[in-house]
Design a binder for these strands. Structure first.
Length: 489
RNA sequence: CGGGACGUAGCGCAGUCUGGUAGCGCGUUCGCUUGGGGUGCGAGAGGUCGCAAGUUCAAAUCUUGUCGUCCCGACCA
C-alpha cells in the first residue's frame, strides 16, 4: 500500500502531482515554469523516443538539428503563425552582462542585439528559411526531416509534463512537390502517432481534425489525436499539420517541377512532446501509484527476496541469479532488489508506486515448494506459480498486461463517450466529464459561445464518423455530423 | 495582470481568533523487536516561528510595512 498517496477520485490533480513526485519522474525546478525530469522519468521518455524514432525512420524520415534561436524577422514572415505565437515567446535582447556596481551582475545596456532572437516555440520558420537553400528541383523532394529538441513557450500556468515553459519534443518538417503528397504525409504521421499511443502507451486515441479555432497557427488543416483522461478531461496527445504552401510562400521556397515550371513546395509539420508522459501517467495510474505499460517500463520485472537472515538471503540469491540471467536473456528488463536496507513490504509498495508491471517474490517457502509469487501491477492480483517455466509465463504475462491496460483504457473511454442532443443535457454532461458527441453548426461564433458558457472546446472532428443529419446543440442550425466536445488540459 | 490563501524542525502541519515554558505526524539517529504488504516498542537529535519596524512587563499570536510561495482566472502542446 502506498502511504499517503491522495485518492484519485478525491483530488485528481493532487493525485497526479503526488504520483509524479513519488514515482520519481520529475519535479518543479527553481527556474520559473520549468521542470526537472529525473532519471526514472527520463528512462521512460527515452523508451518513447526510441520507439517513435524507429517509426519515423520506417516511414522514410531522417533526423537533423536546427538552431535554438529564431531571429524575430523569421517569425514575422508567416502572418498567422506570428500572431499565434507572439504572446508566448521568450526573447533574447542582449548578449552580455557586466558587473553591477551594487554587486552581482547586470545586463550590459551597450550589448543590445540589433535584432532580437526568439527562443524557438517551434521551428517552422528557421527550418523553412533553411529549406529555401535545400530545395531547387523536384528531385530534392520530398524532404522528410525530423528533429528532437527543446522548445520554449511562455505559459502563464504550468503543470508537470502537461504544460511547462520549456519542453522536450520532436518536430517533423517535410516538404513535398504536390498537395496530395503533403496531405498523405500529414495523415501518415497522424497514424504513426495514433499507433504509438495505442500500441506502446496503451492509450486509445480519437483521430480527428481541429476546428479552425483550434488549428495550429499557420496551418491549413490540423490533424490531432485526442485521449481521455481518468478525470473525464481530454488531452491533445499529438498534432500533424498540413501547412499548404503558406511557409513556402513566406520563405520563398520554390522548386522546378517536371514540366520545368516554378512551384511553391507543400509543407507538413508534426510533433509530440513530453506531454505524452502526462498522458501515460493519467491514463493508467491508480491509487497505488503509477501503472506503466510493459513496452515502456524501464523495469519490466522486479524480483524481491523475502528473508529473515542474511544467510537466508544468500540461499535465495543463489536461486534468483540464474533466473535473473534467464529473464535478461529473454530480452526482459529485470531488476533484482536484494538491498538489505528496506523490508520486503516496503519494496512491494515502492515498485507499485513506480509502476513496474510484474513483481516476482521469492522466499524460503517458495524454495521448498519450487514456486514463485507473481504479482501483476495492472490488476494488483498475485498468484503462486511453479518456478519452472517462469520465463515463458512472464513473457506471456507482459503481453497480457500490455493488452489489458489498453483494453481498460478503451473501456473507460467508451463508458465516458456520450451522444447528446439538447443544450441542457450538453451542459450537464460537460460538467460530469467525458467526450460529448454533439452536433455543431460549423461556425467559430458558436464554438466560442460554447466555450464561454461551458469551458468545453471542440476536441476534434473525428476522421471516422458516420454522416448524420442533426441540429446544432447551441444554435439549432443544420449539421451533418457530430463533433467531439470536452473540457481539456 | 485581476481574485484568494499561506510562510512555524529536512518534509507535511497544529498553535494565531482570546498575547504568558515551541508542539504533532513523517523522516532521521541509537537499542531491542519483527520479517510472505510501507513491523512494533523505547530513547535521542533537530526550530532566533519568512524578514523589518511598532504596541506590550511579555509577541509565533496584535498593528504596519516588506519579501517569498502556492491556488483560482486570462494564455496554451
Amino acid at each position: 500500500m502506498a502511504k499517503g498517496l491522495p485518492k484519485r477520485a478525491e483530488n485528481y490533480s493532487e493525485w497526479y502531482n503526488e504520483i509524479v513526485k513519488r514515482a520519481d519522474l520529475a519535479e518543479n525546478s527553481a527556474v520559473r515554469g520549468c521542470m526537472v525530469i529525473k532519471p526514472y522519468g527520463f528512462a521512460i521518455w527515452e523508451k518513447m523516443q526510441r520507439a517513435l524514432d524507429d517509426m519515423f525512420k520506417a516511414t522514410g524520415h531522417v533526423n537533423a538539428y536546427f538552431p535554438l534561436f529564431v531571429p524575430k524577422s523569421f517569425l514575422e514572415k508567416e502572418e498567422q503563425h506570428a500572431e499565434g505565437f507572439a504572446k508566448e515567446c521568450a526573447v533574447v535582447t542582449h548578449y552580455r552582462l557586466k558587473a553591477n556596481p551594487n554587486g552581482g551582475l547586470m545586463v550590459d545596456p551597450r550589448a543590445r542585439l540589433e535584432e532580437e532572437l526568439i527562443i524557438r516555440p517551434t521551428s517552422e520558420t528557421v527550418i523553412w528559411n533553411t529549406y529555401k537553400n535545400w530545395i531547387q528541383s523536384w528531385r530534392d523532394l520530398p524532404l522528410l526531416i525530423n528533429q528532437w529538441c527543446n522548445v520554449v513557450r511562455w505559459e502563464m500556468r504550468t503543470r508537470l509534463f502537461l504544460r511547462t515553459t520549456e519542453f522536450l519534443w520532436q518536430e517533423g518538417h517535410t516538404a513535398h512537390a504536390t498537395e496530395q503528397e503533403a496531405i498523405e504525409e500529414t495523415e501518415r504521421m497522424l497514424d504513426v502517432y495514433a499507433t504509438f499511443a495505442e500500441e506502446w502507451m496503451g492509450v486509445p486515441v480519437l483521430r480527428g481534425l481541429k476546428s479552425p479555432n483550434e488549428r495550429f497557427a499557420g496551418a491549413i488543416e490540423t490533424y490531432c489525436i485526442e485521449a481521455l483522461m481518468q478525470d473525464g478531461k481530454a488531452l491533445q496527445a499529438g498534432t500533424s499539420h498540413f501547412l499548404g504552401q503558406n511557409f513556402a510562400k513566406s520563405f520563398d521556397v520554390k522548386f522546378v517541377n517536371k514540366e520545368n515550371v516554378q512551384e511553391y513546395a507543400w509543407a507538413t509539420s508534426w510533433g509530440v512532446s513530453t506531454r505524452l508522459m502526462g498522458a501515460l501517467i493519467m491514463a493508467h495510474s491508480d491509487d497505488q501509484g503509477l501503472v506503466l505499460p510493459p513496452k515502456l517500463a524501464p523495469i519490466q520485472v522486479v524480483i524481491i527476496p523475502i528473508y529473515k537472515t542474511l544467510e537466508e538471503l544468500a540461499v535465495i540469491s543463489e536461486r534468483v541469479n540464474p533466473l535473473f540471467e534467464e529473464l535478461k536473456a529473454a530480452g526482459i528488463s529485470v531488476k533484482y532488489d536484494d538491498a538489505d536496507n528496506q523490508r520486503s513490504g516496503w519494496k512491494f509498495a515502492e515498485y507499485e508506486l513506480k509502476g513496474v508491471p510484474i513483481r516476482l517474490g521469492l522466499g524460503s517457502r517458495d524454495l521448498e515448494a519450487g514456486t514463485i509469487e507473481v504479482a501483476r501491477r495492472d490488476t494488483l492480483s498475485k498468484e503462486s506459480q511453479p518456478i519452472a517455466g517462469i520465463v515463458e509465463h512472464v513473457k506471456a504475462l507482459l503481453d497480457e498486461i500490455q493488452a489489458n491496460i489498453y483494453q481498460k483504457a478503451l473501456a473507460f473511454r467508451e463508458e465516458n463517450t456520450f451522444l447528446v442532443d439538447t443544450w441542457d443535457e450538453f451542459k450537464a454532461q460537460i460538467e460530469r466529464g467525458g467526450f460529448v458527441m454533439a452536433h455543431w453548426d460549423g461556425t467559430a461564433e458558436t464554438e466560442e459561445k460554447i466555450k464561454e458558457e461551458t469551458k468545453a472546446t471542440i476536441r476534434c472532428i473525428p476522421l471516422i464518423s458516420t454522416m448524420e443529419a442533426g441540429k446544432c446543440i447551441y444554435s439549432g442550425a443544420e449539421s451533418s455530423k457530430r463533433v467531439v466536445f470536452a473540457k481539456a488540459y
